[in-house]
Amino acid sequence: MATEFTLNGASASFDGDPDTPLLWVLRDHLGLTGTKYGCGIAQCGACTVHLDGKNRRSCVTPVSTVAGRSVTTIEGVSGPEAEAVQSAWVAIDVPQCGFCQSGQVMSAVGLLKARPRPSDDDIDAGMAGNICRCATYVRIRQAIKDAAEAMEG
């Protein structure tokens, strides 16, 4: 039986093994490759999507568990937090290699939705699950603050 869910506002379905992680359904079957594989064990956060608006690691999310729910990926993320985060990211050139950045952006948007004015500690805690091997962390922190400020303004 196919798994039906909402993907970036449109209906989507997957008719394969229901244990297949959402990550690989998105990437290999639905062609949304912005969401990345980095570890497969929920250590690095490169695969972060939003499930019903909250951060979720798609590499450990069997597609069966998103049936009837709403999935947002980097390709479809929108709204004031997303706009603020992505503008701030580009404004100070956060990305280096860029491979982790879809996950970083999604996590940052999820953080700001839950905590519109995050402190340094909030940023450390909320972003602790996203590894950047290029170590762009100084700019990630700054961009999140810039985004929060822009949303207030």
């Binding site: 990437r27 490759t33 912005g34 969401t35 990345k36 594989y37 990926t73 980097i74 390709e75 992505q86 990211w89 580009v90 050139d93 956060v94 990305p95 860029g98 491979f99 950045q101 879809s102 952006v105």
Partner: peptide
């Protein structure tokens, strides 16, 4: 490449 690496549209080999 900052913009395409921020909106997920950049293509890597894996993609």
């Amino acid at each position: 490449d900052s913009a395409i690496k921020t909106d997920g549209s950049v293509q890597f080999t894996m993609d």
